[in-house]
């Protein structure tokens, strides 16, 4: 009995010795190291290790993980390429979902990106995720056809409420008309800026233009034509500056609001991980 035990122990040695002889770069060890780097969020190094393995032995799983690395590093273009290649592989459903996510993050038109096979899922959870992200993309695009009913069908009630409010803001943005702002300031200097909630600058504009108008009038009345002309020029300078500034103020107001809304929506989706199950984005203990 003792001899059998000893011989069985002895038989293990060649494999030990062999593995050590080929150093720390055997495919198994490289994979283990790459997974470790991935879990340490050292994604570039992890992707390089996966790529090294890929050159020896190509596999869908390695491509998927390389795609994940790029996704995590916010290099969405590269991630998208990897997930696109895997659409019909054994990891097709996960890849299609992550492809949709990268397209969304790249602000690409999701309708144009998807094909007929895109929304065919065997896994119910992934199918739900896919549909939810599609709806989120429609909301962001400000599509009026985002049906409140379909939001209720696909989301929890609290999320559906939040998304409805976002849908409303995207489809009916609270913007200011630059032309109206310019027109208001043409009628009353600074009024356009007040319209864009730029109260301080609006009032300053009114005071400055008003003051120079008074000096223009006063000097003209007092018989100082040269000074009157100088003040007339300054009045015109500030008056037209106010008209131009009001137009720009409204334009900038709209851009800032749009950016704010986008950031708010993005941070909401990010808090929900874009409705994607976290397990498919690499599991780490």
């Amino acid at each position: 009995m003792q001899t059998i035990f000893f011989l069985s122990l002895l038989s293990l040695f060649p494999s030990f010795l062999f593995s050590q002889d080929s150093a720390l770069f055997t495919p198994e060890k490289r994979k283990a190291f790459a997974d470790h780097l991935f879990c340490e969020k050292d994604y570039l190094r992890a992707s390089e290790e996966y790529e090294g393995l890929q050159s020896v032995n190509k596999s869908d799983s390695l491509s998927y993980y390389i795609g994940l690395c790029f996704l995590k590093m916010n290099d969405y273009e590269k991630a998208k390429d990897y997930f696109s290649q895997l659409k019909n592989s054994s990891l097709g459903e996960e890849s299609r979902l992550l492809f949709l996510k990268t397209s969304f993050l790249l602000n690409k038109n999701i309708e144009g990106e998807s094909d007929s096979s895109s929304n065919q899922f065997m896994n119910k959870e992934l199918k739900t995720s896919f549909r939810r992200l599609e709806l989120a993309a429609q909301i962001k695009a400000g599509m009026d056809q985002t049906n409140p009913l379909s939001l209720n069908n696909h989301f929890e009630e609290s999320d559906a409420q939040i998304l409805k409010s976002f849908a409303d803001k995207f489809s009916h943005p609270n913007s200011k008309s630059p032309f109206a702002a310019a027109l208001f300031s043409t009628l009353l200097p600074g009024a356009g800026k007040i319209y864009t909630k730029n109260y301080g600058d609006g009032i300053t504009s009114l005071i400055v233009t008003g003051l120079f108008t008074f000096l223009w009038y006063d000097n003209f009345r007092a018989g100082h034509p040269t000074r009157a002309w100088i003040f007339a020029g300054l009045t015109g300078f500030f008056y037209w500056g106010s008209v131009y500034g009001s137009y720009i103020s409204a334009r900038n107001y709209n851009l800032e609001k749009e950016e704010e809304l986008n950031n708010e929506f993005q941070s909401y989706l990010s808090s929900k991980n874009y409705f994607i199950p976290t397990e498919i984005e690499g599991s780490c203990k």
Binding site: T3, F6, L10, F13, A23
Partner: peptide, 20 residues
């Protein structure tokens, strides 16, 4: 002697790992 050989191999094993 078998056990001695076993211990020797263990040492070689550890030595290899160390070397790597």
């Amino acid at each position: 002697s078998f056990w001695l050989l076993f211990i020797f191999l263990i040492s070689v094993e550890t030595g290899f790992a160390q070397l790597q």
